[in-house]
Design a protein around this nucleic acid. Structure first.
Lengths: 193, 193
DNA sequence: CGGTATGTTGACGAAGGTCAAGTAGGGTGG
DNA sequence: CCACCCTACTTGACCTTCGTCAACATACCG
């Protein structure tokens, strides 16, 4: 386990778990602003994988914990983020345990689409282009699916006129509302509209 | 979402997520000492279900947050617990996304067996009796399986001489090492021996 | 302009879900 | 104390979904 902690400045980091026989599950997608590594150690073994080039602001664990003792507000921020990650993890548990392949892929795409909509709500009504930072295989690792099944769901969603895959990593969301309804979640998933 | 937080004194509480069509996934098993409810709110919707009768020590959210500001050590404890829960959630994501039904059931049983072994290491070599606080259906909700599949895995493990189900909620672990090897995890899962 | 990565598609099989019937505990009331 | 009932559990038959294996297509890179 790494002996440092830090916040991500730019790029994306994925945390993965691996079974002895090689099966992989991605367990977190960390974005700029997110904190990497547990303050007050935990003996959990993840593998951190940078999906894109990453800039981090790092500390060694010990000095950081001292800092944390000096500035309690820092700890509060970490607690908030930890709580959010916990919520995200549990949301993902529902996906992994109970959703169908189609629902999984739709949910995955909605994550990125929702982010874009949050930046500019006018995308709700327009079609929008996304650049996915993952290969089919990586999406599979994230969704608990084989890469072939991910691929098949992409073409199924394309055939239904909901998305339009472009090149290796591009997708155009043709119908946000339809995609949303394919996630299996409640109308708005309890999120922002 | 509830407007209070608190620690569990005795009993077990399960957090579940439900999809609009009724599919259920359990996302956490909280035990005595665990904290329930997010300090610094998060708008995540869980359903809290008491599997046994429960005694809690509760606070309304607002006064608790004031208390938290006064006593930073409190926040540190919460951060630690939150980190542990996050680890547990991610461990479970691996289970939900990548393990087979048999591995899932074995992993589930090992949780309780390990706890017993931690209390008294001599159980490592003896057979031990467990009282599971869940029905087959609840285990299914926890493992992302149907109750029938859970049942079938129990009988399969019985036929293999690894466990011996007794009555509705009892199990005797006949061979801890064999059960452990059925979880798909590394020899000791990176835990205590 | 080839070559390697990644993506698509098809054929097939296995794991697990669903539906349905039957069984066993455990608790209640006669 | 026993009959009954309700709930949980088991087991079987069948079917859907998804994984696996394999061939092929396409894009990206030097």
């Amino acid at each position: 386990m790494v002996d440092f902690v830090g916040t991500i400045i730019s790029g994306m980091v994925s945390l993965t778990k691996i079974m002895p026989d090689g099966r992989i599950q991605m367990v977190a997608m960390l974005r700029p602003g997110n904190f990497l590594g547990h303050p007050y150690r935990t003996q959990a073994s993840y593998n951190a994988v940078a999906s894109t080039s990453v800039v981090m602001c790092g500390f060694r664990r010990q000095p950081f914990e001292n800092l944390l003792r000096k500035i309690p507000e820092l700890g509060q921020g970490l607690l908030e983020q930890s709580s959010k990650e916990l919520d995200a993890a549990r949301e993902w548990m529902l996906l992994l345990g109970r959703k169908t392949a189609r629902e999984k892929v739709a949910s995955f795409l909605i994550i990125f689409a929702r982010e874009k909509v949050a930046q500019d709500p006018s995308f709700l009504k327009k079609q929008m282009h996304l650049d996915l930072p993952y290969t089919r295989a990586e999406m599979g690792d994230y969704l608990g699916l084989s890469l072939e099944t991910v691929s098949r769901q992409f073409t199924a969603l394309r055939d239904d006129g909901i998305v339009d895959p472009q090149g290796k990593r591009g997708v155009t969301i043709l119908n946000y509302a339809a995609l949303l309804s394919e996630t299996g979640d409640d109308a708005d998933g309890g999120w922002l509209a």
